[in-house]
Amino acid sequence: MSADEVNSVEQGTQATESRTLPSSLVIPGIKGEMVQLRPATLDDLPLMDELQAYHNASSITGKDAQAERALVHTWVSRSVAWERGLSPEESGVGDPESRRTIAWSVLADSNPDDDDVDDRTKVIGMIFLIDIDSWAKSARIQVMLGRDYRGRGYSRDAMPRVMTYGFAPEPAGLGLHRIWVAVPEKNTRSLSVYQSLGFIKEGTSRHALWDDANQRYQDQIVFGTLVDEYDPIRSLDVFGMHLIEDNPGVKEALAAREHSLAMEVNDSRSKREAREAANDRLSNDLASLIGGDSAEEKAAASKTSTKNDGRGYNWPNSNNGDEDRNAKRSERAWWRNLVNRSRGGNE
C-alpha cells in the first residue's frame, strides 16, 4: 500500500466516523465454522431456560441466575427494539444512557440454508455486544451458552467474528474503538480464551463479586482490546479457525490491518533512515579527528574501527577487523584507535 493509499484510508476513516448511533440497525448474520449467528428474537428467550444457560452463573459471570436471566431478557429486548427502529424508551425496558445492545442467537449448525429444520432447535446460546457507547466507541462482549455446550470451542468460533464486525468502520461495522470484558477471577477458562484473543488485563475490581459456591467474595478482572491491537486473522488462527471473507466487516478489517502494517513498514523505514543518517554523521565526526587525504578516506577509516552495538549505531568500541582477537579490551578501546590512527601507527 502506497503512502497516498494510506492517507486515503485515514481520510476516509475520519470522514465516516460518527459519535451517534443510527436510529435503527439491520443486525447482520455471521457465519462461523462451528456455529452460525442470527439476530436473537424474543421467542428465543424461553430456549435459554431450556438450555440451562443460567446454571452456575455466579462462577461464569459473577451474578446469580435470576439476575443473569433478567439481564439477558433486557439485552434481547433492546436489540429487537433497535432492529425495529424504536427508541430505548420504547423497548419496554428503557435505558437512561440511551446505549444500545446487539444480541445474536448462537446456532450449532454450519448450514444456515437448511430449511427442513426449525433453526430454534439449533440454538445453543447467545452472544452480545452490550452498552454500545457511540460517544466513547466502546462496548462489552459477553457469551452465554447452554450448560451442555460449554467448553467445546463454540465461543472461540463466535467471539472473534463478532469483534471483527464491531471494530470494522461504519457502515460495514460499528466503528468501535474498544471492546472489553469483565470476568470473575475463578472463571479461568474464560480468562484464558480472552487472553488468547489478544485482550489485555486492564485492572482488577477487588471483591466486586460474590462467589456463592464458596461463600466468599471474589475479584472481577477487566480485560480490553483496542481496534489497532486486534488482529482478526491471528484471533482465529490461535484457535485453528479460518477467516470467512463474506462475513460483515471482514473486508474492511483486512484493509485496516493492511493499512496498519503499511504504517509500521513506513515507520520502520523512517527509523532506519534516521539511524543511517545518524551513523553517517558519527562517521564524519570521527573522520575529522583521523588523518587521511580526503573526506572519503577519513570516513572509511573511521568505519573500519567501528562495530554495530545492536542499537543501529556503529560505535568504535571493539577490534572489529583486527587480526588480534585476543587483545585486551582496553587495547581495543575506541579512543586508543583514534590516537593510533592520528599518529599513523601503533603505540
Rank of each mutant, 00 (worst) to 15 (best):
G344N: 14
I290V: 06
H259T: 03
V339C: 05
T121W: 08
V76N: 02
R99Q: 15
L226D: 02
D116S: 13
E331D: 07
R156D: 09
W75F: 11
G321T: 02
S23E: 01
W315G: 03
E170Y: 11
S23I: 05
Q11C: 10
K201A: 10
V80P: 00
G62L: 06
D285S: 13
A277N: 08
T101N: 08
S268N: 09
D322T: 08
V26N: 00
G151P: 03
N320K: 05
R269Q: 11
A253T: 07
P171Y: 07
F223V: 06
K298E: 15
V76K: 01
Y230A: 00
S205Q: 14
R140D: 10
T225S: 04
A255W: 03
A108S: 11
D64C: 03
W315E: 04
T20N: 07
P248L: 08
A300F: 04
R336T: 05
Q36G: 13
D118H: 14
G125H: 02
I30P: 03
K137R: 10
R189L: 02
M241T: 01
V250R: 11
G92S: 05
W210K: 09
E89C: 13
G29S: 12
A277C: 06
F223A: 04
K271C: 05
S23C: 03
I290Q: 00
N284G: 07
E185Q: 12
S283N: 12
G125D: 07
G312V: 09
S110N: 14
A255N: 12
G198A: 06
D285I: 10
L209D: 10
Y194K: 01
D114R: 05
G175L: 01
N284R: 06
L71V: 14
I244V: 13
S330N: 11
L191S: 13
A108Q: 07
A300S: 09
A255L: 11
A168T: 14
S268Q: 05
V93C: 06
Q220L: 15
M163A: 13
S205R: 13
S268M: 06
E229A: 01
S294F: 09
R234G: 08
A158G: 09
L176E: 07
G125Q: 01
W82H: 09
R147E: 12
A40F: 00
D109Q: 05
M34D: 09
P88C: 14
Q220E: 15
Y194C: 02
I30T: 09
G125W: 01
R178W: 00
G344H: 12
K201C: 06
M144N: 04
S260L: 09
G29Y: 01
Y54L: 00
A136N: 07
Y54F: 07
V183T: 12
G62R: 03
K251H: 13
E276Y: 07
T121C: 10
G312Q: 12
G291N: 08
N308V: 11
